[in-house]
């Protein structure tokens, strides 16, 4: 997958969507969609072509982990790369996300380099 892939950023905090979007643009990914929670993300997924999801864990309405489970249970989206971005660093949360089928996990705070490493790790494993 190349830098023209369409990436959906899901976060209830507009500043975080902007920061992640800024980092992605710095990495050459300019085809970006946004959603403010899991429910909003599902609407985008059903009406748009999304290649990659970057999602916050804690959100009002449908949370990141609920969105992940919904996506993995849907035959259209079950293989969609899904990067969880969160301040939730507890081991039990990581295990819960892995069991739900997360592609990778990045803990806030993070910088562009960390995001690039996580994206590349997912894209490499998806391509393999």
């Amino acid at each position: 997958m190349s830098s023209n892939m369409r990436i959906l950023i899901v976060d209830d905090a507009p500043p975080m969507r902007k920061i992640i979007g800024k980092m992605l643009k710095g990495l050459g990914y300019t085809n970006i969609a946004e959603a403010s929670d899991g429910g909003d993300a599902l609407r985008v997924l059903r009406s748009d072509h999304i290649d990659f999801i970057i999602c916050d864990w804690n959100m009002p309405g449908m949370t990141g982990i609920e969105l992940l489970r919904t996506v993995r249970a849907d035959s259209h989206f079950k293989n969609l790369p899904f990067l969880m971005v969160t301040a939730e660093s507890k081991k039990k949360n990581v295990i819960e996300a892995v069991r739900a089928g997360v592609s990778n996990y990045v803990i806030k705070p993070f910088n562009q380099k960390v995001l690039e490493e996580k994206l590349n790790a997912i894209l490499t494993s998806t391509a393999a």
């Binding site: 905090a13 507009p14 500043p15 975080m16 804690n58 301040a87 803990i107 705070p109």
Partner: peptide
Amino acid sequence: ESAPTVIGELLNMVSGQARASLA
């Protein structure tokens, strides 16, 4: 205008990292 939500996010991240250290 963005300052309150930025501070909220900074607090989330500071607390998240500190909580991991304390754990």
